[in-house]
Structure formats: C-alpha cells, structure tokens
Design a protein around this nucleic acid. Structure first.
Lengths: 341, 341
DNA sequence: AGCTCGTCTGAAAGCGGTTTCAGACCAGGG
DNA sequence: CCCTGGTCTGAAACCGCTTTCAGACGAGCT
C-alpha cells in the first residue's frame, strides 16, 4: 500500500494521531465512538481528520474487526430486468445497515457460479444467492461452509438454509386456472434455463392443471431471453394449442414479436401469457397478461434475512411470497377453430 | 475475526503452514507463484490447503498487497435498464483482470452520490462513475483526491479526467435530422433528470436543429421513467407539435401508452422517438424509432480504461462513442392538419 | 579442501486499523 | 493523609497475509 506515484498519498491513522498529538487508539475511539474521550481530544482529532482528509482504510478495518462490512450477491444475468430490481432493494437494505454490496454475475453459466460464490465468501460477511443454477451437490457443499448464506428463489429439499422465494407453483397454477376458465384445453409452455429451479417449479404446476382440464406441453427453448421466445414460437403454431405460457415476460415478448410478424392475432387466435410482470411492459404497447412477482419485497426481505443472520445467528424459516395474476390484453377465449376440433 | 459460534472456523495461512510443515512465507509463495519452491513442498502445501479447505482472507491480502482487487461502480438507478447492461460489461472486464465489482446506487439523489463515492474510494482500487449527477464542484473535489476514477457519460469541461461517453449531441442531431427530413417543423422534447449531463447534451442538439428548420420545445418532466412520460404527454397535445422526442425509451414508452389510451395514432397523428434503444423494446410491440447506444461497448471500454489506469498511470484521452439512428415504426411524416397550419 | 556464488527457505517486519491491558490521574472516603 | 475505585489514555498485541532480509545449503571453481 506504498505511495505509488500519481496515487493519493496514504493518510493513515497514525498520521492523524501525530497531528492531533494523541494515540492511534484514541483516534479510533473517537471515530467509532467506542469509548468516552475527553472533548478536547475529540476536537483535536476531528480537526486533524478534516485537515488531512483522512479516510479509514476499509481493508484494515475489515481485518481488525473481522467483518468486511460487505455483502455479496450472485445473480445469473444482469441483463434480465428481474435481477436489477432485486439488487436495488438489496442494496438499499444493505446500506441501511452500513454495508456495501458486491455483485457478481454468472452469465447463466452454472459452472462459473461455484467459484464466484467461493470468491464472494472470501470478501463478504454474507452472501445472497439469487436463483443459483448450480447443482444441488455444489450448493450443499458451499452451504456446508457455515458462511452466512441466504438462498433466493431456490429451495433445496433437505437442506436447512434460510431462504426466500416466490411461490412459482402458485403463480403458474393461477395462470392455468385463468386459461382453463376461458375454455382453453391445450397449451404450450416455453421453458427457461433448464438448470433453473424456478423453471422446474413452474412446470410442477402443470400436473395440477390437468385436474382442471388443461394440458400443457413443455417446450425447452433454452434461455430466458426474448430471442429464445422469438425462435421457439413458430413450431408451436403447428400444434393444436390455443395458448402459450412462458418462463417469463421476456420470452413472452419475443414470442409476441414473432407472432405479430406471422400475422397471428393475440389473443383472438392465440393467448400469450407472461411471467414476472416486468414493470416496463405494463406501460408499453405489449399489455401482457402475466403474474407479478413482488421483486422489491423479495430483495428487501432477502436482505433483511441476511442481516439478521449476520448479527444473531437466528434461523429464519424459509419464506415464500405469493404471486398475483394480472389479466391484461393478451389472454382471451380460445379461437373458434381450435374449439371445434 | 474470532471464531463466532455458528461461523466457519477460520483457517489461516499459519494453519496451513503448520499442517504442511513449512513457513507461512512458503505457503504464500506457492499460492501466488511469486517464487520458485521445491516441488516437494509445493505438493505438501497443496495437500494441506485442500485438506483444510483454506481460502486466503481477502481483507488481509488487500491490506498486505496494497490493492483491494476490487473496482467500484456508481450508478444513478439500477431500475433503468441502461445501467445493468453497462454493469454487465464492466463486471466481465473486471473479472477478466481478476477484480471484483462493488456496486452502489444513488437512486437519482445527487446529494447521496458524494458520500457513496467517498465510500467506494475507501475500498476499491478504482471507481467508475456512471452518469454522475453531482455538481461540478463536488466532482472536482473527488477527482482531486487522485484516486483512479473514470467518468462515464459525463464530460466536465476543464477537468482532465479519463472519461468515456456517448455522443448524445450527435445522436439527438440525427433524430432531429430524421424528423426534419420527414417534414416536421415543431416538436416537443420530454426531458429527463434535470441534473443529468446527458439531458443537457441532448438539449444542446436542438440549437443546431433550428438550422434545418425544426423547432424543439423542451418540457421538463423530471424523471427518466415511463411514468414521467405517461404524465407529461397530455399537455403536449394541446400545442401544435407533430412529434415528441424523449430523454430515453422509457419516457417514450410511457408517452406511447398514454397516447394509445387517448386514441392518438402513432405515427399517423404524432411521431414519437425514443433514445438509448433498450433492447427489450426491439422485440416488443412498441417498435420504437430511437437512437441506439452501444452500452456493452461503453461498459467494456470504461472497464478497460480503468484497468489501464490501475496498472500504469497512462492518461487516456476522453472517448466518445457514436450513436446510431434506428428508424422503426413510430416516426412518420407529420399529420395533414398540422401541415396545413 | 576452501571459497564464492546462487538458490531456496524461514523469521520477522510491515500493511492500517481495533482492542486489550495496564498505568496515570483524580475524586471521594476512611 | 493515604488508600481505593473509577475514568480516561497510550503502548502493544493482534487480525491474516505479503515481502524483505538474512541465513543455510549445495554446486562449481581454483
């Protein structure tokens, strides 16, 4: 940490203590308010700090305190609007507790996640894993390190970990119910990342959907992007489905774009239903029927759970947030010709 | 850093050195490859590391090395899709250079920015300021600390700082040219955050636009959100403009949503033009005419400039990236009745 | 054989803070 | 007046790692 040329000269606590003519211990006490100090000295310290422009070195503090004052967040994809909104809430909670936020992105690569988390654990007091794609075994291994971790949007049966997620099954069940009620009998589901737990949860809902007479065919389209939706939609048209469900709004929007190009009317000929309710769309032309996730609450609660974990080692029960069906313009009764079949 | 109950027992380098029966110095040398070590010892060290599950403490490394291995990024608003895309690129570049990324968000509050940056400087090797809203004076003060900083999307005349930005003036000039060519004579501009440099740049383009016969009225609508666009659009209709320019695509989409509600045809009755080209929209129903920003390149280049700044103290020249006009479905010739006036 | 030189290793000194610990000082009580 | 007890301060240990420095050792040369 030597003074490199062109770098700011490092002002240390001992510079301050010299200038204020007190010990470093006293400076520390004044700055942290950890003990009572003679007002005269307090004044001198503050003056010196101001004059020298002293800022405590975060690494040194972290080392001495045994706390980094930082939490880490892993997300699969920053380009997916879902995550920045969660990050926003997390960041705000973290800041309220005087912590910084480190962000890492795996770019949907499960293989990368492990080392990223490992790295986060080396420099953060606690880690938030958002929708981790990694295998159960890897996850178990990481959680076993006893480093504070909160799992977001992934539930691992058998592992007792503080976690919070969204009731995807419930959300998708509402979607299915909505379609069934409109009279749909056959639908296709454009899936998301195969490694995604959230994807599996959505699919689970389809079993129950049979009960109310809706048969959903799962179509893997690989990614959670609009491009994937765009590409996947055409083959679906050749089947006899009357509605398309999707992994998320992005996929749905991609599908809609392609349908428009193909001249397929939505919802007259085909209903399209999104998932997540990305706020952008509410106000855009694509007035998508979808189910909404309380992303802000999700991030906020996740941050709070982690914080609680960091101060006392209280073990929160896994939480699940409900989703809300938003019926808008892209869902309607099945097309005539389909009904006639 | 004592072993708190329920926390992972801290494995330190000296645990490893004991287990491997070598000195801590040797362990460090093996792990960092900073010096040649007897293969036998190397083997013993690796075994011990694996067995104990040792991970070097990042704070201690940072302190000893005088480098945190971290870069900081400040953004005004994570919910604005613009920034996560930049972050994505930055994060990737950072990682390629073995650094982590700390993210802070000011939530569009200029007053908060100063302390956030100060905090970033205490724990990051370098800082990326994305579209900082703070005053020139504050900015100058921070830059004066000689801490490596790269300015993104803000140019401060007179301050010599490595910076990269987008040629907003050029982009908006293209927009104006496009409209003028279509025959428009009067337009309204729905502005963004007043403190935003980028907003000022866009407005600068309107002076030149007079030259080709387009008169643009600036309307402050406060924020860069779709809601702001939604709210601002109605009064505009009472004026005689034939086109609406916007601070960004979000504002444009908000305006479009309101126009649709009001039954105003786009582009038949009114042209609407966005800014930024948020990729989501390309594929959504709102096929917005806009100008695109190379966000990925912006983030990547910014990260690289910072990295260069961190290794040698080379002073890059301020860079400016060009924008590209994307003519799509929301711009057209002015409405008949407007022409007749 | 004796010396020099080069290579590899370990001890120890930082890095910049926090916290313990013991001493100085002052007030109050016996 | 001396002793006790409580407060406030500074010296020093410590956090976990890197890096310098000096010493040990073996090889090569005279």
């Amino acid at each position: 940490m030597q003074n490199r040329p062109g770098r700011p000269p490092r002002i240390t606590i001992s510079d301050v203590s010299t200038a204020a003519n007190v010990s470093a211990a006293t400076v520390s006490r004044v700055l942290n308010g950890t003990a009572k100090v003679d007002p005269v000295l307090v004044e001198r310290v503050h003056d010196a700090v101001r004059e020298l422009g002293y800022r405590p070195n975060a690494a040194a503090q972290g080392l001495a305190r045994g706390e980094w004052g930082t939490i880490g967040v892993l997300v699969p994809d920053l380009a997916n609007p879902y995550f920045p909104e969660v990050l926003k809430a997390v960041s705000s909670v973290a800041r309220a507790h005087g912590r910084r936020m480190m962000v890492m992105e795996s770019d949907e690569d499960p293989a990368l996640e492990y080392e990223l988390v490992e790295d986060l654990m080396r420099c953060c007091d606690g880690v938030l894993l958002c929708s981790p794609r990694m295998s159960r075994a890897e996850l178990a291994e990481l959680l076993d390190r006893k480093h504070p971790v909160v799992l977001v949007n992934r539930i691992v049966p058998g592992l007792r970990v503080p976690s919070i997620s969204v009731d995807f099954v419930g959300g998708m069940t509402q979607v299915c119910g909505h379609l069934a009620q409109l009279g749909h009998r056959r639908a296709a589901y454009l899936g998301g990342p195969p490694a995604s737990w959230a994807n599996g949860e959505r699919i689970r809902a389809f079993e129950a959907a049979r009960a109310f007479g809706l048969d959903v065919t799962v179509i893997e389209c690989g990614a959670a992007t609009s491009q994937a939706g765009y590409d996947a939609v055409e083959p679906v048209l050749r089947s006899d489905v009357t509605a398309i469900l999707t992994y998320n709004d992005l996929v749905a929007l991609g599908a809609m774009a392609r349908l428009r190009e193909l001249g397929v009317g939505v919802p007259e000929e085909l209903s399209v239903i999104g998932f997540d309710d990305i706020s952008l769309e509410r106000v855009a032309h694509a007035n998508l029927t979808t189910v909404s996730v309380p992303r802000d609450e999700l991030g906020r609660r996740a941050g709070e759970i982690l914080e609680r974990l960091l101060v006392n080692t209280s073990d929160d029960e896994p939480l699940s947030l409900p989703m809300t069906l938003q019926v808008r313009d892209t869902s309607g009764p099945p097309a005539r010709h389909a009904e006639e079949k």
